[in-house]
Amino acid sequence: MLSPVSKVDSFKFLGSIISQDLKWESNINAILKKAQQRMYFLRQLRKHGLPQELLVTFYTAVVESILCSSITVWFGAATQQDKHRLQRTIRSAERIIGAPLPSLQDLYIGRSRKRAENIIKDPNPNPNPKGV
Rank of each mutant, 00 (worst) to 15 (best):
Q81E: 12
I31T: 14
S70R: 15
L32P: 01
S92G: 11
K83R: 15
A35N: 10
T57F: 13
A35C: 09
P102R: 08
G98F: 02
P102N: 03
A30T: 06
R91I: 07
V63A: 00
K114A: 14
M39E: 12
I28E: 01
I18R: 09
R43Q: 15
Q105W: 01
Y108I: 00
Q81I: 11
L67P: 03
A61R: 06
N124F: 14
S26N: 12
I97E: 00
R115V: 03
W24Y: 13
F58Y: 12
W74M: 03
S16L: 13
I66G: 05
A93S: 15
Y40A: 09
I66P: 05
P51A: 08
K23G: 03
P100C: 08
R85I: 09
I31Q: 13
W24S: 09
P51S: 06
L101H: 04
L22I: 10
P123R: 11
F41I: 02
G110K: 09
A35P: 00
I97S: 01
L86V: 07
L101N: 05
R38D: 00
E53D: 04
R46T: 10
V56C: 13
I120N: 08
S69V: 08
I66W: 05
I97T: 03
L55V: 07
S19R: 06
Y108C: 05
I120Y: 08
Q80D: 12
I18P: 05
Q20L: 10
P51L: 04
K34N: 11
R38L: 07
A99D: 07
D82R: 04
I18Y: 13
R113S: 12
L86Q: 12
R46W: 03
L55Y: 02
C68A: 12
G15K: 12
I66M: 04
N124M: 11
P125C: 05
K34V: 02
G98K: 07
G110D: 08
S16T: 15
A99W: 04
L54C: 01
L45P: 06
S112Y: 09
E94D: 14
L14S: 12
F41Y: 13
D122C: 15
H84E: 07
A61M: 15
S70W: 07
V56Q: 08
R115E: 09
G110L: 12
S26T: 05
V56F: 01
V56N: 11
I109D: 05
V62H: 07
A61S: 15
N29A: 10
R91C: 01
I96D: 12
S112N: 06
I119Q: 08
L101F: 05
L104K: 00
Y40C: 09
T79F: 14
A30H: 11
Q105I: 00
Q36M: 09
P102K: 06
R111I: 03
K121D: 07
G110P: 07
E25A: 06
W24V: 01
F41Q: 04
P125L: 15
